[in-house]
C-alpha cells in the first residue's frame, strides 16, 4: 500500500507492505537512520519520534497509522549543521551522552516533555524529568547527566 506523510517538513510517499512499522518506514524506506531500534518491545525508547507533536515509540506504531501525519525525527530538530536545537546543545555541553545509541530517543522525549510542561505553565523539576524519562533507557551515563542536560535545555527552550 502507498503511505504518505510529512517527515521533517517534507512530503514523502512510499509503497510498503501493510504491516510496516513506522520505525521501518523511517529507517529502511526513508533511510533516516537516526531513529534507533533497541528492544522491539517499546521499553527502551531509542525509537521515539514526534507524530503530530506528540512523542511516540515508532517501533510500536504502524506506518499506516501515521498516514497524513506530521512526523519529526531527530534529523529534523536542528535548523542546520551549525545551528543545533537548544536541547542538542544542552546534551553536548552537559555530557548527556556516551555511546549515543539512546540519545535520539532521549532528545525527542526531552523536547516533547519540555513543550508539554511549558504549555501547561508547569515548572519542570528534576523529579519531573526523572519521572518523564521512565520510558527511555540508557546503559552508559547513569542518567545524572541526561537529567542535567534536559533541565539545562528546558531553560533555553521557548515553545509557548
Amino acid at each position: 500500500m502507498k503511505i504518505a506523510m510529512i517527515v521533517n517538513g517534507k512530503s514523502v510517499s512510499r509503497e510498503v507492505s501493510d504491516n510496516t512499522l513506522l520505525v521501518e518506514y523511517i529507517r529502511d524506506h526513508l533511510r533516516l537512520t537516526g531513529t534507533h531500534v533497541g528492544c522491539d518491545t517499546s521499553q527502551c525508547g531509542a525509537c521515539v519520534v514526534h507524530v503530530d507533536g506528540q512523542a511516540i515509540k515508532s517501533c510500536t506504531m504502524l506506518a499506516a497509522s501515521a498516514e497524513g501525519a506530521a512526523v519529526t525525527t531527530v534529523e529534523g530538530l536542528a535548523k542546520s549543521k551549525d545551528d543545533l536545537h537548544p536541547m542538542q546543545v544542552a546534551f553536548k555541553e552537559n555530557h548527556g551522552l556516551q555511546c549515543g545509541f539512546c540519545t535520539p530517543g532521549m532528545i525527542m522525549t526531552a523536547t516533547d516533555m519540555v513543550a508539554r510542561y511549558q504549555a501547561q505553565g508547569k515548572e519542570i523539576t528534576e523529579d519531573a524529568i526523572r519521572h518523564e524519562l521512565e520510558g527511555n533507557i540508557c546503559r552508559c551515563t547513569g542518567y545524572h547527566n541526561i537529567v542535567k542536560s534536559i533541565a539545562d535545555g528546558a531553560s533555553k527552550m521557548t515553545t509557548v
Binding site: G34, T73, L84, L97, G100, F101
Partner: peptide, 21 residues
Amino acid sequence: QSVERREDDRFLTGLGQYVDD
C-alpha cells in the same frame, strides 16, 4: 577542564553510523 567530544554533533543530529545504519 571539560572538553567537548568530536563525535557528539553526529550522535545528536541522528548522523551516527551504527552497524545497521
